[in-house]
Amino acid sequence: MSMQLGLDGMPARLVRVTPSRLATWEDCRRRYRLTYLDRPAPPRGGPRAASTLGAVVHNALHAVFGEPPARRSPARAAAEVDRRWSDEGFRDDAQAAVYRERARGWVSDYVERHAVADAPEPAGETVGRERWLSAPVGTIVAEGRADRLDDRDGEIVVVDYKTGRRVPDRDDVARAPALALYALAVRRVLRRPCRRVELHHLPSGTVAAADHDEDTLAAHRARAEASAAGLAEAADALEAAPGRAEALFPPAPGPRCAACDVRRHCPEGRAAAPPDAAWAGLAP
């Protein structure tokens, strides 16, 4: 937690939050406590294939975009997938082999379209890869790691890679709290204009984009501030009265409990949905 002067001149606490912390708090408060507050942290679920696949693709693109455009190529991109591949979470060797080949194709196609010297839809100048951002934004310190930051005609564009089943559209981008917080943080950290945010879905080749204005960014900031205030208040109350954990952090059972990585510690979650297979969630 950081401090700044409040309206009355007294120090006001700035709550440090990441998009994942805020999303977990809004999704299920028990999961938030088990993930971020309990110490020692309880054991989590095992690896999931969709997460493994996403990490491989992210890391491959991180490596490719670290090279100048003249040294990028589809073949280099495919080789980076091979170099970083992991079979964790897949059903068996055969399924892993199928998705390894798909990932090679996704990344190769993406680089040919966006990253080579004569790309038909050039990404612009890459000014950040897996860039850690941390900046005061209102009553919070917004933190997180942006997949990529591009400079396009003097403005910074926030790019987030996706490899899941769902193909994003413009509304998904405009509603994404993480992308809005990254845009706000970029303005403070890099002191550059930043309005455009994009989701790049590699399995479909879709680039979904939205341009924020001051009003939409203010709305995202207000929601983040409200959630941050709630989670900080609950954490303080838990510290003062550990016996109130269940009341302060109740579960929110539902279908999403099938893939929750702390479901083993949540009877309500286990009753709400049978566990997903570790390979559920892979893009078809």
Rank of each mutant, 00 (worst) to 15 (best):
P177L: 12
D276G: 10
G46T: 06
R83T: 04
G254V: 11
E67C: 12
A78F: 08
R29A: 07
G54N: 07
D27M: 00
T18R: 05
R129Y: 13
A185Q: 06
G128H: 07
R33I: 04
S86L: 02
E155C: 04
F65D: 07
T216V: 02
L53T: 08
E155K: 05
N59S: 12
L238W: 12
W106T: 14
I156H: 11
V186T: 07
V56S: 03
P40V: 11
A278E: 13
L282F: 06
S20W: 02
R102F: 15
S73W: 04
A97Y: 00
A97M: 00
A77H: 03
L184I: 01
A226P: 07
C257E: 10
V98Q: 14
L217T: 02
L22Q: 04
P242A: 09
G205V: 04
L22G: 04
A180N: 02
V167L: 10
P250K: 11
L133Y: 08
M1V: 10
A209H: 02
S73T: 11
Q95P: 02
E80L: 03
R270V: 06
R192T: 09
P274E: 09
A222G: 07
A115S: 15
D27P: 00
R84C: 07
D150H: 04
V197F: 06
Y161I: 08
P68V: 04
R44D: 12
A142G: 09
D8E: 08
P136G: 13
A219H: 00
G54W: 01
A55S: 12
S73L: 05
R195N: 04
Y99D: 11
D172G: 05
A183C: 06
A228H: 10
E198G: 09
Q4A: 15
G124W: 02
V173T: 02
C194R: 05
R152V: 15
R76E: 07
E198P: 06
T216F: 01
R29I: 01
E214L: 01
L179A: 03
E143L: 05
R166I: 13
E125N: 15
A96L: 01
S2E: 10
V189T: 10
